[in-house]
């Protein structure tokens, strides 16, 4: 699995235009002030076995970029490639088989059980007039077991904890059999132990060959649970470094606009310390 984000720029203005622009020529002929661009010429690559933590202040463009990758938003210019294939040329089903998007929380007014929620992940393999098979159900139980929440299968999703709900969403993503997991601030509504639990489970998946990109506001978690830290500032990639490369560095200061240093504790963990 390889995700390539190539020269992506984005502005909210163009997306409001009726004809959504796709072609670079339009980009050149229209005048966009560079300071209205939410993303400016962003490029990076993620491969299997990589867990990339995405850091940046509010408004830096993290969420926008995470929403462009599964095509919720159309970039003004640039392209997203999954295994060398542009997402533009993929059908909705193919996209869902390649990229799993895990929202902060699932919004539904209806109380589905955990099993029903997880089975929804099978949707890209099921035609409009069909429903999940017994094999799909079997797979759902296996995945729930793998994530350690098999005992929740029959419970309604509105009666379980936030951390468990996040794991259910991850289980749903695994049902998609997509090798790329995109998580938008997976820890933001969770207590500390659930934050650790969700990231630990995700990290285990990455070790099994998934690729993962998640955004977070917690640099300590990013340093602990990632193979690479991608920092964004004002719509540009500020740096892309391995956690251990950040040791002793003040690189994080530039994106958070205050003095920060990454230090190693006696136990060997990296933490971000304000000066």
């Amino acid at each position: 699995m390889k995700l390539e984000v190539q020269n992506v720029s984005y502005t909210y203005e163009h997306d409001r235009k009726p004809m959504g622009l796709h072609n670079p020529h339009d980009f050149q002929t229209r005048i966009y002030k560079t300071d209205t661009l939410v993303l400016k010429d962003v490029s990076f690559t993620i491969s299997s076995g990589e867990m990339v933590a995405f850091l940046g202040k509010n408004g830096a463009g993290k969420t926008t970029l995470l929403r462009i990758i599964p095509s919720f938003l159309t970039p003004l210019s640039g392209d997203i490639l999954v295994d060398e294939v542009s997402v533009r040329s993929m059908s909705l089903h193919d996209k869902a088989k390649a990229i799993a998007y895990i929202p902060q929380f699932s919004q539904t007014a209806f109380a589905y059980t955990v099993k029903e929620s997880v089975l929804m992940g099978r949707s890209p393999y099921i035609s409009m007039f069909s429903r999940p098979s017994m094999q799909d159900e079997k797979r759902a139980f296996e995945i729930l077991d793998e994530l350690g929440i098999l005992d929740l299968a029959g419970r309604p999703t509105n009666e379980i904890s936030g951390g468990e709900r996040q794991l259910v969403l991850i289980a749903r993503a695994l049902m998609q059999d997509a090798k790329l997991l995109i998580l938008d601030e997976p820890t933001s509504f969770l207590d500390y132990s659930n934050q650790l639990l969700v990231l630990e489970k995700t990290y285990e998946l990455v070790k099994k060959g998934y690729a993962c990109l998640y955004s977070t506001h917690n640099p300590d978690l990013a340093l602990a649970y990632s193979t690479r830290v991608l920092a964004m500032d004002k719509g540009k990639i500020a740096f892309s470094m391995k956690p251990e490369e950040l040791e002793g560095s003040d690189a994080l200061s530039s994106i958070y606009k205050r003095s920060l240093i990454v230090e190693r504790t006696q136990a060997g963990r990296l933490i971000c310390v304000p000066q």
Binding site: F72, L92, H93, A96, S106, G121, Q176
Partner: peptide
């Protein structure tokens, strides 16, 4: 019945 983004990310 899920959110628009979720439904689309599930290929609907």
């Amino acid at each position: 019945s899920l959110s628009e983004d979720e439904a689309r990310s599930l290929g609907v």
